[in-house]
Amino acid sequence: MGKERTQTKKSADEPSSYWCSVPGCTADGRKKANLAAYPWMKGVTFHAYQGLHRNPSLRRRVSLYFMMEVLCILLQILELHTDHEYSIAHRKYPEYSNAEVHTDLSVHDINIMETESASYSKGNVLRELFVHKATNSDASVRRYFGLPSISILLGLFSILENASKKLKYWSGKDSIDEKRYEEDNARKPGPERKLTMFHEYLLTLLRIRQDLNIGILKDIFGISESRVSKIFNTWINYMYRVFSPQIKWPSMQKIRKYMPRSFKASFPNTRVIIDCTEVFIQKPRSPTAQSQTYSNYKNHSTFKALVGITPSGAFSFISKF
């Protein structure tokens, strides 16, 4: 007759293979059994995670701590400040001490971090870090977007945001037709966009200023290459429609009124300063288009545009490509 197997439950007060799961904590069951060498272990008890391998929710909570540690380190490297609501690197949480596991983090703290990190999915952590880094100072705005200050960046966006609340992506000539949701002021159908209007605005400025490859923008903003292309094509035309009426040909009286002293002394009759700019494009397949776009100056196929500014530096003329 075989022996009957009995299973006894481990006690937290007896030496065992228990150890603390908090990084950096060296408390374990062996030190608990040797209070003479480790007197600080007196009164400490260990509690095992019940069914950790069968409890995905509890396992996610444990791994969440490590994820938040890595995220906080990244934010500290970028020297983030607390002027944005998603900056958690320097946020102070209530200090709790849990004697059972010898750590400053309690389950309540983990619940708070789990809630606040819900928006930090794998696809948008890099995007949020980049947006914060690129918009946290006037110097960063000038470096990344070519605008003089944060106030100008936000001021231009407020004009674009107020001009259209339901901007739709360009997807061919049929996309210019008015949709029912635009006429009836109803909710736009389909899935929600991954990027906000402000993110799309920054993506467009970044591509104009830095001429970044679509693949790089895809990685930064966490979207597909086709989506980057649609966003850029949509916003570049949208910005043209909104800002082109601001390009006006001033009268000679206004030009003389705001003309700098250097021009008044040497070139008093100057009305416009013109220059031609060229943008590289892919070589067209059509021989006719190749001959029309080829530039002898650049030795490449380009789009050409003529721009004009007043003596005071304001744009007064921009031709079509």
Results as ranks from 00 to 15, higher is better:
98 N>S: 09
98 N>P: 01
100 E>N: 13
105 L>M: 14
106 S>C: 10
108 H>L: 12
109 D>C: 08
110 I>F: 03
113 M>N: 02
116 E>D: 12
116 E>S: 07
120 Y>M: 09
123 G>R: 14
126 L>S: 05
128 E>Q: 05
128 E>L: 01
131 V>L: 05
141 V>Q: 01
142 R>Q: 07
143 R>E: 07
143 R>M: 06
145 F>A: 00
147 L>V: 03
148 P>D: 04
148 P>T: 03
148 P>F: 01
149 S>V: 03
151 S>M: 06
151 S>F: 04
153 L>P: 02
156 L>E: 06
159 I>L: 14
159 I>D: 05
162 N>A: 15
165 K>Q: 14
165 K>V: 08
173 K>T: 11
174 D>N: 15
177 D>E: 13
178 E>D: 10
180 R>S: 12
180 R>H: 09
183 E>D: 09
183 E>G: 05
191 P>H: 13
195 L>C: 09
197 M>F: 12
198 F>M: 14
198 F>S: 08
198 F>P: 05
199 H>N: 15
199 H>G: 06
200 E>C: 13
201 Y>S: 01
204 T>S: 13
209 R>E: 08
209 R>H: 14
211 D>W: 07
212 L>C: 08
213 N>K: 15
214 I>V: 15
215 G>V: 07
220 I>R: 02
226 S>C: 10
228 V>L: 04
233 N>D: 13
236 I>V: 14
238 Y>N: 06
240 Y>G: 10
242 V>D: 09
